[in-house]
């Protein structure tokens, strides 16, 4: 009985966490899908989003939910600048040279943020109550984060499938040369996708603070970068909603497995939940080498 209760509540927490993982990965997947760029500096943009939320809250008492559009615009702008300044010049360069560039961009943003915000760990407190649901105790802000994530993913999906621009982007993902032949301005699509990818990532940083409003620090991004890499592959790399679903599963696995691993004596179950999640990734890749929702290569 206790076990069942634990499992249910942990799966619930895992679902919430997973939605955050998912939304924090979509930007990475989009950029990879369209531009074939692995954004090593991904986490730095999540950090920017988190700090935007923190700043808006402490300076203007804006609740994080209201900061979402601001962060999106902010992110679009940063993404556009980064693309024009650096990425544009490397589109035709060997694939891996962009990896070095995004590494540099990531560090640059972190260090710039350190000058602006300092190296302290900050946070804020936005209480909107707590939900009690059987064995589950959870703050409404986390539930809000969950719904916002789902909403963002759904909107992105609609935009991709229902609009002309979205279709053009999908065409580039599937066949770059073919898209050129069809008269799509690929460079414009690149600029747009990169900006949207970064915009989404900065936005997800705000949702991260809805979930974890503390421990915000200029170097917080590293953990998210790593998870996002793994999750994006799990989801099949070039599909943002694949990433969302994969993030969801990853969260479920991490938190859900605790209920079982906690029963093993003499180990540290929390670290093992991580192990289980990564093992899950490897098994999936063995069975389906292009990720859960990935198509061909």
């Amino acid at each position: 009985m206790v076990f069942a209760e634990n499992l249910i509540s942990n799966l619930f927490y895992g679902a919430l966490l997973g939605s955050i993982y998912g939304v924090a990965t979509m930007g990475l997947s989009l950029i990879f899908g369209v531009l074939r760029i692995v954004n090593v500096g991904h986490g730095a943009f999540i950090m920017i989003g988190a700090f935007t939320a923190f700043w808006m809250f402490t300076l203007y008492s804006l609740p994080p939910v209201a900061v979402i559009p601001i962060a999106l615009v902010f992110g679009l702008a940063i993404g556009f600048i980064a693309f024009q300044a650096v990425i544009r010049r490397l589109v035709d360069a060997p694939e891996l040279s962009t990896l070095l560039a995004t590494f540099g961009i990531g560090i640059f943003i972190e260090e710039l943020a350190k000058l602006v915000w300092g190296a302290d760990y900050v946070g804020f407190s936005w209480d909107i109550g707590t939900l009690y649901l059987g064995p589950i105790t959870v703050s409404y802000s986390k539930i809000l984060a969950f719904f916002c994530s789902v909403l963002v993913a759904a909107l992105l999906y609609l935009w991709f499938t229902k609009t002309k621009l979205g279709n053009a982007i999908r065409a580039v993902v599937q066949d770059r040369e073919g898209a050129v032949v069809c008269g799509i301005n690929v460079n414009r699509i690149f600029a747009l996708s990169f900006s949207i990818g970064i915009g989404l990532t900065v936005l997800s940083g705000v949702l991260v603070t809805l979930f974890v409003p503390v421990g915000i620090n200029v170097y917080m991004g590293g953990d998210y970068t790593l998870k996002a890499f793994v999750i994006s592959v799990l989801g099949g790399l070039d599909s943002p909603w694949g990433a969302f679903i994969a993030g969801f599963l990853f969260g479920l696995f991490e938190n859900g497995s605790y209920a079982i691993l906690g029963l093993i004596p003499g180990v540290e179950p929390f670290a093992l939940t991580r192990f289980v999640a990564f093992a899950f990734l490897l098994i999936i890749l063995l069975v389906k080498p292009t990720g859960l929702l990935g198509g061909g290569e």
């Binding site: 634990n6 966490l17 979930f211 974890v212 953990d223 938190n255 540290e268 929390f270 670290a271 991580r274």
Partner: peptide, 12 residues
């Protein structure tokens, strides 16, 4: 019990 470095959720 311990938790690993860099965790986002301690709920479980």
């Amino acid at each position: 019990k311990t938790y690993p470095k860099g965790v986002q959720d301690l709920s479980p």
